[in-house]
């Protein structure tokens, strides 16, 4: 499968958000890919509002099975969540479990007025009733096929489909 260029997907996502941009909207990216994407969108949209990041390790629903993620990063929410208009950003929307955890974590900082979701890729395969308000591209991937957002040395983002593994 040939993916479109990552910067084209990014531009499409940014355009969709720009059409519904509000003055007091703040962006929160989910570690790690979502945080990169959030920074990129923040810059592309020319926002001056604060930019937050969430590490959802303490809110995962698979802690019992796989334990603590080996590289937990601090969450950083540099604004008052009460009454805020939040755009939650992640790179790939799959089962919806990461977004569920992120929303739970956000509510431990306060009660936002609204939370919307933007993702670069919606790859299907949802296990929870969660949908994105803004999507860069929709892909119908087999559930074992992996897609990653990578960042090179000069900070450029690139979507990569992992090669199919022989069954």
């Amino acid at each position: 499968m040939e993916l479109p260029k990552t910067h084209e997907i990014l531009e499409k996502l940014a355009a969709a958000i720009r059409a519904e941009l509000t003055e007091d909207m703040v962006i929160v990216g989910i570690h790690t890919g979502g945080a990169w994407l959030a920074r990129e969108l923040h810059r592309t949209l020319g926002l001056s509002s604060p930019l937050g990041t969430l590490d959802i390790s303490f809110y995962r629903d698979d802690f019992e099975r796989i334990g603590l993620h080996p590289e937990v990063k601090p969450s950083d929410i540099p604004f008052d969540v009460d009454g805020s208009d939040i755009l939650l950003v992640d790179d790939v929307l799959f089962t919806g479990r990461t977004v569920r955890a992120a929303i739970n974590e956000l509510f431990d900082y306060g009660r936002p007025a609204r939370v919307r979701l933007a993702v670069l890729v919606d790859r299907g395969g949802r296990e929870l009733p969660i949908e994105a308000g803004f999507t860069g591209i929709r892909l119908d991937l087999d559930e074992h096929r992996m897609i990653d957002l990578l960042r090179n040395e000069i900070g450029e983002l690139e979507l990569k489909l992992r090669p199919e593994t022989g069954v």
Binding site: S57, F58, K73, S75, E105, F107, D108
Partner: peptide
């Protein structure tokens, strides 16, 4: 521990882990 320092400075000082 560094990630937990941030948790203890929040409005809700708890995580569901």
């Amino acid at each position: 521990a560094e990630s937990f320092v941030g948790v203890t400075e929040r409005e809700v000082k708890k995580v569901p882990l």
